[in-house]
Structure formats: structure tokens, C-alpha cells
């Protein structure tokens, strides 16, 4: 009678990790700089969208992703400027600094729900951006930080295009593993909070503990994305971490599908690539995002991942009909 073990990874978690494992080969598979650049930006977008996804699992829409990206990015870059270039140190730092900030911050903001949480995270991003502009001695202010030393791996410099991409892929893989582990392990808890937080709490679930855990991990993953962005652009600048970026990452997660870890990955892959192909008309990508956002909200609440899962279910249906009715797959939950 007991439901299956809560921490077991499903096909989607394995697929997500396998995809990023495969991407690890891309730096060696192609020398095409355009392809490498797109893949790199997809990886960064996917990491940021995973951060949004974690919060969406608990029905919390966060605009604070760019703020945490900035914390991670600036922390890592400042470390390299102070002589610490070892990636085995700066990558963890880019995760830990925003995560540590998120811990006390979470105690304050996670009491808010719904639109109030949205607004408070929006305000956080605006505040951090202003602070970056106003602290030129630490963060370079409006100039940002540039010309920092390349990161190293056990003494080897990672400065060529191939190593930059490989590092981005490795970080994205790490982000996917962490996200999969967290959301699979607490699947039931997060789902309970998403569906009915009040009931979960009244049955004894310590809701704030799970929200805090999600918030801290989401901040850490955003921080890695921030470092990855700085490493690709060779600069960290306040304008990379504003409300616009918050909207982009939310769009990736929602259009890709909030019900499955594959959603944000699919959303970032598709939308980053599309905006790249729009090239000079890059501004028009925003309009496309807007249309897709409206469309997904109205007709495909599970986003791309949800739609694909529904299609797969329909194709499989004739075969499955003979067997016992399957429990509703996770991806179908996108709406709510």
C-alpha cells in the first residue's frame, strides 16, 4: 500500500543528467565558435532556469535569480583577482556565497507567498543591482570587473575557448545533479507545499525548512550560473544581473515547463538558440518570448516538457491500456 520511495530518481532526472554529460563532449566535438558560444549561453541559461525551477516546485516565482547570479559571479571573480584561481575552490565559492546570503534572507522573505513573494524578490534584484553600481571600490561600479586572471584547474590555465566551454558544461552538470537530487529527494514535500501548503503544515510538515532548503540551493545554482557568465564574457557587470535577466530565466522555466526538470533545460536550449538565430533582430526575441508565454499559459500549462510528456502518453496509451492504470505522471502537474 505504501507509495514508492520518495528519493528515487525518475526517468526525467536521469535524462537531464545524461544530457549534460553528453554536452561535456561538445568542446571536443566542434571547433565552430558560433556553436560553442550558443552552447555556452544555453548552459548558463539552463542553470539559471534550474534555479527558478526549484522555487517553482514550491509554487514560488522568484525574480531574485539575477541577484544570486551576481553574488556568485562577483565572488568568484574577486577571488581570482586576489590570486585564488583554482576552479576547485572558486566554483564551490560561487555556490556557497549566494547560498550563505540566502539563508538569513530566506528567513525573512519566505514568510511571504504569492504576489508578495514575487514583489519582494523583484525588489531584491533591483537593490542588489543598485548596490553594485554604488560600490565602485569593491565591484568596479558601472565599469564592472574585467581583466581578471583565467581560472586554473590544478595549475593548468583554462583560458582557451574549449576549456571555458568545458568548465561551463561541468558546472551545468553539477547544477543538474544537485537540482535532480534535491527535487527528487523532496518530491513529495515540495509537491505538498505547491499543492496545499496550509494542509501540509497542519499535518506536521515543517514547511519553512523545505522552503529554506530550496531557496538556498536555488541561490547556489544561480551563483554558479553567474560565475559561468562572467567566465564566458570575461567580465562581470551590473547590467548582466537586472530585472530583464530575471524575466528571461522565468520565461525559460515556464515555457520549458515547470513540472519537470527537463522543462527549464528545454526552455533555455530552445529560447537561447532562437534568440541567437534572430541575430541582429535580437530585440524581437523578447516579443517571441512574450507570445510563447501567453500561449503556454493559456493552452499548455506544462510547457514544452508537459506537452511532450502528454504526447508520449497518448502514443503509449494503446499498449498501456491492458495493464493497470498508471499513476498520473509528474509532468502533468505543470498547471496548478
Amino acid at each position: 500500500m505504501e507509495a514508492r520511495s520518495p528519493s528515487r530518481w525518475g526517468a526525467q532526472e536521469w535524462a537531464a543528467v545524461a544530457m549534460f554529460l553528453a554536452v561535456l563532449a561538445v568542446p571536443w566535438a566542434t571547433d565552430d565558435l558560433l556553436v560553442q558560444s550558443i552552447v555556452n549561453r544555453v548552459l548558463i541559461g539552463a542553470m539559471a532556469a534550474l534555479s527558478v525551477f526549484i522555487m517553482l516546485r514550491m509554487d514560488l516565482l522568484s525574480f531574485a535569480t539575477p541577484a544570486f547570479m551576481a553574488l556568485g559571479g562577483y565572488a568568484a571573480v574577486l577571488l581570482t583577482m586576489h590570486g585564488v584561481t583554482e576552479v576547485l575552490l572558486i566554483v564551490p565559492a560561487s555556490f556557497l556565497v549566494p547560498a550563505l546570503v540566502a539563508l538569513p534572507l530566506g528567513a525573512l522573505v519566505l514568510r511571504l507567498r504569492g504576489v508578495y513573494f514575487v514583489l519582494v524578490t523583484f525588489v531584491l534584484t533591483e537593490i542588489l543591482q543598485l548596490v553594485l553600481f554604488m560600490t565602485p571600490r569593491l565591484t568596479g561600479g558601472a565599469d564592472g570587473l574585467a581583466g581578471f586572471p583565467a581560472p586554473t584547474l590544478l595549475g593548468t590555465e583554462l583560458s582557451d575557448a574549449r576549456s571555458v566551454l568545458a568548465l561551463a558544461a561541468a558546472m551545468a552538470l553539477l547544477a543538474a545533479v544537485i537540482t535532480a537530487a534535491l527535487t527528487a529527494h523532496f518530491r513529495q514535500h515540495f509537491a505538498a507545499i505547491e499543492e496545499n501548503e496550509v494542509l501540509a503544515e497542519s499535518l506536521g510538515l515543517v514547511v519553512w525548512r523545505y522552503k529554506a532548503m530550496g531557496f538556498v540551493v536555488a541561490a547556489g545554482i544561480a551563483g554558479m550560473a553567474g560565475f559561468s557568465l562572467g567566465n564566458m564574457l570575461l567580465t562581470v557587470h551590473p547590467t548582466s544581473f537586472g530585472a530583464q535577466q530575471a524575466v528571461d530565466t522565468i520565461v525559460y522555466a515556464i515555457i520549458g515547463g515547470r513540472g519537470s526538470i527537463l522543462g527549464p533545460i528545454a526552455g533555455a536550449s530552445l529560447l537561447v538558440t532562437v534568440s541567437d538565430f534572430l541575430g541582429n533582430q535580437g530585440q524581437y526575441a523578447q516579443g517571441l518570448f512574450g507570445l510563447l508565454l501567453i500561449l503556454v499559459t493559456l493552452v499548455a500549462r506544462g510547457g514544452i516538457a508537459g506537452a511532450v510528456a502528454a504526447l508520449a502518453r497518448r502514443l503509449r496509451a494503446p499498449r498501456a491500456a491492458a495493464g493497470p492504470a498508471a499513476a498520473a505522471p509528474e509532468a502533468a502537474r505543470g498547471g496548478a
Partner: peptide, 28 residues
């Protein structure tokens, strides 16, 4: 000390089994 709610109150998207299993797990 546990309460019930006036409106129907379940974990909507979850199966009956998952609902009960969550109630048992969350309460230890």
C-alpha cells in the same frame, strides 16, 4: 493537535494513496 478544514482540503494533484502517504510521512 490536528485540524480539518471547512473547504475540501487535499493535495489536489496527488492520488489518494499519495495523500495518505504524505499525511503519514509529514506527521512522522
Amino acid at each position: 493537535v490536528v485540524r480539518s478544514f471547512q473547504q475540501t482540503n487535499t493535495f489536489k494533484a496527488a492520488s489518494v494513496r499519495e495523500n495518505v502517504s504524505r499525511a503519514l510521512r509529514f506527521s512522522g
